[in-house]
Amino acid sequence: MNMNLTLFGQTIAFAIFVWFCMKYVWPPLTQAMQERQKKIAEGLDAAGRAQQDLKLAQEKVSNTLRETREQAAEIIELANKQANAIVEEAKEQARAEGERLIAGAKAEIEQEVNRAKDALRTQVAALAILGAEKILESKVDTKAHNKLVEKLASQL
């Protein structure tokens, strides 16, 4: 072992290194580390909050979706009802219209029948008179026997 001035040289170097480390190395590094730690903590916090928000939003979405579905179902039901009502009404109208048409047709037929009966009656009356004239070989006074003829005709 050969001790010499190196001893003090080493001590001085040591002191200078410690001073430099204390002044220029340690503070900025630890500060940066603390800041990063804070930032990471904040980031994790924010992530937690965002997750909470997401959960809330999802709940809201599902609620809204459910409500909308219900509303849609209501609307469809209503529309179905309305459509049924319209169809019923249309059916009713059609039936009424048909009945009306049938009634009209019946009336017309009756009219036609009556008219035909009338025509037939007059023709029969005329034929009866013609026949009677042939039988009697004289003219039947239409005016005088009008009553009789009409009676005859109405009996047909």
Binding site: Q10, F17, F20, Y24, V25, P28, L29, A32, M33
Partner: peptide
């Protein structure tokens, strides 16, 4: 060599300290 190693240490760490960021 002591001083060289000490300077290497401080140089490395100082470099890291200067570029230290979050």
């Amino acid at each position: 060599w002591s001083i060289a190693m000490g300077v290497l240490f401080l140089w490395l760490f100082r470099k890291a300290a200067l570029s230290a960021s979050t």
